[in-house]
């Protein structure tokens, strides 16, 4: 098990060298465009003309397609099937299953929705694959985000795997002394207490100690902190970010004007 929870893959590429904020803006812009531009094929276009080429240029195409196939496709596929069957729109029935029917309209509707969700998830997957979480947080802190937020995000990412390991240990320990975690509903519900209790109380007792420890290291100090790493940012990227914002505004405007 890795000591920190993150998708990040270290490569040397154009995409990895971009400033984290630029990549974040890009991900948000792609999502908004995919959702609001009033053309049917927009999400598919965004996916194949922007996201896939970016993943290739970022040298993370293999990881990206793995995530797309293993994580995104099943969820989106399920959504597609549900929507195609259950949306009560359209007349032309193409497929019938008991009281459920898929019409050409509902299939088209489901396809567009699924494509939008696919774009949303894959844009963020791309962002997470190419950006290290602490890089993002230190860049945001440098731009004025209170440093407590970085503490919360970074330490959460460290605590979760520890907590999961602890939870697994507790489950194994309670099972070994005979706790029933697999039979009837009441037995399983009753098992919740002995599993959750030790985990929660154990970690809450640590809080005070941690608080004293970080207090002693100047956590609440108001002074500007110096950073060990410099994160590159250029004039070009700032222009890029603002043009992405403009693109978002433009597509929202087009959506309003079109409808």
């Amino acid at each position: 098990m890795s000591d920190r929870l993150s998708f990040h893959v270290q490569r040397d590429s154009f995409l990895h060298r971009l400033n984290p904020l630029t990549k974040l803006t890009l991900a948000f812009a792609l999502v908004v465009v995919a959702f609001v531009l009033p053309f049917y094929w927009t999400p598919i276009f965004v996916l194949f003309a922007v996201i896939v080429p970016l993943s290739v240029s970022g040298k993370i195409f293999r990881e990206f397609s793995w995530a797309a196939l293993r994580l995104i496709l099943p969820a989106v596929g399920f959504l597609f099937v549900m929507q195609a069957l259950f949306q009560p729109i359209g007349e032309q029935v193409v497929f019938k299953f008991y009281f459920l029917d898929a019409t050409t309209e509902s299939v088209a509707y489901a396809f567009r929705n699924a494509a939008r969700i696919f774009v949303m998830i894959s844009a963020f997957t791309l962002f997470l694959l190419s950006t290290h979480p602490s890089e993002l947080m230190s860049d945001l802190t440098r731009r004025g985000l209170p440093s407590q937020f970085s503490y919360v995000v970074i330490s959460t990412l460290q605590i979760i795997p520890q907590m999961q390991a602890k939870a697994n240990a507790i489950i194994a320990a309670q099972r070994s002394r005979g706790l029933d975690t697999e039979s009837s509903f009441l037995k399983r519900a009753g098992a919740l207490g002995p599993l959750v209790g030790p985990l929660v109380f154990g970690s809450l007792v640590e809080v005070e100690e941690r608080a004293i420890a970080i207090e002693a290291r100047g956590f609440t100090s108001k002074r500007a902190k110096t950073s060990l790493y410099e994160i590159a940012d250029s004039k070009f990227e700032s222009v890029l970010r603002w043009s992405l914002v403009a693109l978002v505004v433009l597509s929202i405007g087009l959506n309003l004007w079109h409808s």
Partner: peptide, 17 residues
Amino acid sequence: TQTWVLIPIAIAINIAI
């Protein structure tokens, strides 16, 4: 400070439970 320390642990509790 205690709040800031509690938040990550609470998030981990959410996820673990």
